[in-house]
């Protein structure tokens, strides 16, 4: 009876997607090499943040180890390419490895919640970082590994713009797949897990499996991002996969708005691109950023995408307060 109609929200989302795509495709015309590189980085950070948003925002499982999965994807590709394996075989290997390790990391989440989980995942990240740094025979340690750009159907992706288009395509495909997943019954099960796991279990929802899957799929997204990150930078060392990058990935999700589909797009833009525009602020930039995060949590913990709703709610509250005040004034004889 009810055919899917184009609601106003759907039209707005569609228009936004079209405008964003057009803007992203046109952007290189106005940017130098470094600008294109930054946008490529933004696209890959967004992919990793989309994964974390699935784990944290939709399924409600705190993970502070997302950069470790980025590292697992990146090093899998780098190590395999060094051994002469094609990038296009290294990619699925890295993603599968990230998925498997993410599945394993989900097990503590079955036992503990909240703060324990936050620190368990943070600790996991510290461990991965130590392994990458210390096992020089495999990872090159602090000396890192050089990674060449791959070829696609015989076409070299050495040019920055070509690789930028690859990064955009990776973002588009990941976003589409995650969107499909979120509107499948799995997405509903994830929301149940977040809202009320005990009730979910009493309704036959296998909280255990879905928790593990939420971690593993989130990790796989970071694995994808990491696999494409290594050839983008041409070189990888342990530094982008430590605790601080993990915190930044978390902040991307939180700043944009956890559990909101476009949150990671906005959050990744703020964390990746803003420091470059605010170069004048120099060393003070991170101080300002830190204070901004505190202020955002104080005023709108739902993230920036929740601000319009918050403002509307505040306005409505003020209007009704004024309305009732006016009503009382009018009622006076």
């Amino acid at each position: 009876m009810t055919l899917p109609t184009l609601s106003r929200a759907n039209v707005a989302a569609l228009a936004f997607i079209v405008a964003m795509t057009a803007g992203l495709l046109a952007a290189p015309l106005f940017l130098k090499t470094y600008g294109v590189y930054l946008l490529s980085l933004w696209a890959l950070n967004t992919v990793a943040a989309i994964g974390l948003n699935l784990t944290l925002g939709y399924a409600g499982q705190i993970s502070l180890g997302q950069a470790a999965f980025l590292g697992i994807g990146a090093y899998a590709v780098a190590i395999l390419m060094k051994a002469g394996v094609s990038f296009w075989l290294g990619l699925p290997a890295g993603v599968l490895l990230a998925f498997a390790v993410g599945l394993a990391l989900g097990f503590p989440a079955l036992r503990v919640q909240h703060h324990y989980l936050a620190f368990a995942t943070l600790g996991f990240n510290a461990l991965v970082f130590l392994v990458i740094r210390n096992e020089e025979w495999l990872t090159g340690g602090n000396f890192g590994i050089r990674v060449a750009r791959p070829e696609l159907l015989g076409h070299s992706l050495r040019s920055g713009i070509d690789y930028y288009h690859v990064c955009l395509a990776v973002l588009a495909v990941t976003a589409l797949l995650v969107w499909l997943l979120l509107r499948s019954p799995w997405g509903r099960a994830f929301a149940c897990l977040r809202d009320n796991p005990i009730r979910a279990e009493s309704l036959g929802i296998d909280v255990r499996s879905y928790t593990l899957l939420a971690f593993a799929i989130g990790a796989a997204c970071a694995g994808v991002a990491g696999a494409f990150l290594a050839p983008l930078v041409n070189f990888i060392d342990p530094s982008p996969f430590g605790l601080v990058p993990s915190i930044y990935l978390l902040l991307m999700v939180i700043i944009g708005g956890p559990g909101r589909f476009f949150g990671p797009f906005l959050g990744a833009a703020i964390v990746t691109l803003l420091p470059e525009w605010l170069r004048v602020a120099d060393v003070w930039y991170l101080v300002i950023f830190g204070i901004f995060v505190v202020a955002l949590m104080a005023f709108c913990p739902g993230g920036l995408l929740a601000v319009p709703e918050k403002v509307a709610a505040m306005r409505a509250a003020r209007r009704s307060a004024r309305g009732s005040a006016a009503g009382q004034a009018g009622a006076r004889p």
Binding site: A189, R199, G204
Partner: peptide
């Protein structure tokens, strides 16, 4: 104990969806 962020309809669907097909099939 309802799922506060889901619509009323989705609450009911969530309460029965795990009885339909297999876990992988539901994806």
């Amino acid at each position: 104990q309802v799922f506060g962020s889901l619509s009323a309809r989705d609450n009911l669907i969530a309460a029965a969806q795990e009885y339909v097909g297999t876990l992988a099939g539901r994806l």
